Simulated assay, not measured.
Amino acid sequence: MSSRGLWADVRLRAAWARQDWAAILREYRRAADLSQRDLEPLVGMPQPHISAIESGRRQVTSAEVMARITEGLSVPPELSAVAHRPDLDKWGPPTELRERIAHGHSTGRTDLRTADWIGEVLAQHRRAEDEIGGRDLWTVVRSQLDAVTLLIPGTTGPASDRLMLLAAEHAHWLSWVSAQQGRIGAALAWIDVAHGWAVDGGHADMASWVHRIRSYYSMRHGDPVRALRTAEAARLAMGLSPAAASVAAHQAAVAAAALGERERARRLADEALELALRVPEETDRPGWLYWLNPARAMLQAADSAYVCRDWQAAADGIRAALPGLVGYPRDHAYYLARMEDATRRV
């Protein structure tokens, strides 16, 4: 695997974001399947020095050593900027990002290969978030977003639209992680940025999805009226793919049930399930809905039954679909708790 490919590894990127030099060396060796001896010619240090850094007996404080490791391990540009941008730790979106798109000037030929690479890496961050959380990857994704927005002013037409979608996906991820950290103000600010970029780029699915996320935030904060209103806006948007329409319908069902509109909630839940089952293959869904496979669709239907207090249907549905939920420990725990509670209430 090339050095560039190695840096798609989320554990390695998280170690870089923390500037944990011991972990950087260890995770690079793990990803590349190298010994400490193999690392010697890359970083210009003998094996005993590498061992001392990895074990914590020696700290990396020299700028020269940091530069040697950075160059030797071929750290990609969107990551090498992280070490020099402490402001990336700030949670909310800076005005500069919006201005860069609205008022920027072309700085040269747009590198869409870089954009494609960053998009692939973001997809891996989405999948890793459930396992390791998003906090360690925060500065990495912020730096990636900078790399994307620097490309946008120099583009027009479909290439610009494509970059707008990638920027919106990053802003959505940042919103989600902000919310998980209890920073709801930053979460709402990032989701607004994501929606603006999605609309400007003509991406109906992403614009609908961020409305759905806003609805979810409203539900979490005890406002089902606003949640239903926003979910319906997501569901009724024009030109949606079946997958995007499905998740919006499910969110509307949850909000309707919270307001006591159970028949409406059941109809919406049936709609969500039918739409999701139209696109069982991951390649037929937007990248951020990679998880909406048939098992997930059935779990969402069972979750709708739960909020409608159809306890038997909820328990049976979750029990049947739960074995298909592999690799998502937090979601597995959530649905297991739902099933156990529904079972007690039957």
Rank of each mutant, 00 (worst) to 15 (best):
D331S: 11
A333Y: 10
R135Y: 01
G134C: 05
A187W: 09
R235D: 02
W190K: 08
A187S: 09
L150W: 07
Y306N: 03
T107M: 15
S304C: 09
A198F: 11
P280K: 15
G134P: 04
Q36R: 14
D341F: 08
W173S: 00
V225W: 06
S3C: 03
D116Y: 11
L325A: 06
V225Y: 08
E281Y: 14
A313V: 03
Q36Y: 06
P280I: 07
R98A: 13
L42C: 05
R29V: 10
D130S: 11
T283A: 15
R266F: 11
W197T: 10
L166G: 04
G134I: 07
E129A: 05
S2Y: 12
H195Y: 06
A342R: 12
W209H: 15
G44M: 14
V210R: 11
D38Y: 15
G317Y: 02
Q144E: 00
L79D: 03
L88A: 02
E99S: 08
S215K: 09
A276M: 14
R226N: 08
A81I: 12
R278P: 00
V10N: 14
H105E: 00
T230F: 07
D38S: 15
H332N: 01
Q124E: 08
W288C: 06
R226I: 03
E78H: 06
R229W: 07
A198N: 08
